[in-house]
């Protein structure tokens, strides 16, 4: 097991370096001079341009620049936003809980619905339930979620007036930021209605974000269950006279979950992509909206470091998924 973890960690190093190279290259490939971008619309004199260049390190050779860049990263210096002038890392850390909360709730919804639906569809293969749920899953999988979000807003916010259109919580509530998770902080604040407000803001975006992972998880669970139920050991469990509930819930499910957990983990990358769209539609103040705003404002230090941090995060999550895979699969665990 220890060697398994170690090999996974070593494997990550070249990938991580590659990610830093891409992030490093980004402003240098950008259409337009980053120095001019930084100086803003007023333009600069040639002297000031040279000075800014030197300040940003653009006048040195590329390998030197890259090493300096890596050095700054190791010190936690991810540069400053051109717009707000604040350190990128500070902004990232401030916005990250919003995305984490949204993503977490979405993946919980997707898993809690997707896995049981997939299991049931597999058990009742060919039934009405199977056909309807798998057709819905394919529709969900094909869904342009930016449109889906707009439809939900039209219906629930516009037509029914049940949910707010944007933001994380109603402006009438104010409480200190303890965990960064609005659901928890609103409860901690003890203010009446704060939790309900946070929840009503969260529900539509998380449903939208959960749509594609839910579809993928349901489909994957079904096919994993079908495959496992044809295995010899499931036949053995039946031959032992185990009740159907136990054959499926213990013997089949445990093995079917191994690929499903991998799938759930891989949805994290999908979620980050989905967060860009979902946060834009619902004006959710998270990483996705921050990135897309920064791209359109050409705030290149934010894009550069945001890219780096997001990729690093996805990579770490994938590592955790790999390790979980090792934990739940005795064939790897006991090597």
């Amino acid at each position: 097991m220890f060697r398994f973890i170690l090999s996974k960690l070593l494997y990550l190093i070249p990938t991580f370096l590659g990610i830093t190279i891409i992030a490093f290259s980004f402003p240098r490939l950008l259409a337009g001079d980053p120095v001019l971008l930084m100086a803003g619309e007023r333009g600069v004199t040639p002297e000031r341009h040279a000075e800014l260049s030197a300040q940003l390190g653009f006048d040195r050779s590329l390998p030197v620049q890259y090493l300096e860049f890596l050095g700054r990263l190791l010190h936690g210096d991810f540069g400053n936003s051109l717009v707000t002038k604040k350190p990128v890392l500070t902004e990232f850390l401030a916005l990250f809980p919003a995305t984490l909360e949204l993503g977490f709730v979405a993946i919980v919804i997707a898993t809690l619905i997707g896995v049981p639906v997939g299991v049931l569809a597999a058990i009742k293969r060919g039934s009405w339930f199977d056909q309807i749920s798998m057709t819905s899953a394919l529709v969900g999988f094909s869904m342009p979620i930016f449109w889906w979000g707009l439809l939900l807003i039209i219906f629930f916010s516009g037509f029914l007036g049940w949910t707010p259109v944007s933001g994380r919580i109603s402006l009438m509530y104010y409480f200190p930021n303890v965990t960064g998770f609005m659901l928890i902080d609103s409860l901690l604040s003890g203010q009446k209605g704060a939790f309900a407000s946070a929840l009503s803001h969260l529900i539509l975006p998380s449903v939208v974000l959960a749509t594609i992972p839910l579809a993928v998880i349901a489909r994957q669970t079904r096919s994993a269950m079908l495959e496992v139920m044809g295995e010899d050991y499931v036949r053995t469990a039946r031959a032992k006279g185990m009740p159907q509930r136990r054959v499926i819930g213990v013997h089949a499910l445990r093995n079917a979950m191994i690929p499903v957990i991998t799938t759930i983990g891989l949805q994290i990358g999908v979620l980050m992509a989905g967060a860009i769209l979902t946060e834009t539609i619902f004006s959710w103040p998270g990483i996705g909206k921050w990135m897309i705003d920064s791209i359109s404002r050409r705030d290149y230090p934010v894009v550069q470091s945001g890219l780096l941090l997001t990729a690093a995060m996805v990579m770490i999550v994938n590592l955790l998924v790999d390790l979980t895979y090792g934990l739940i699969n005795p064939r790897i665990r006991n090597k």
């Binding site: 010899d232 050991y233 036949r235 053995t236 469990a237 013997h251 445990r254 739940i328 005795p330 064939r331």
Partner: peptide, 8 residues
């Protein structure tokens, strides 16, 4: 070998 459940 295949007749025994690999996860238990």
């Amino acid at each position: 070998i295949a007749s025994l459940n690999p996860s238990f």
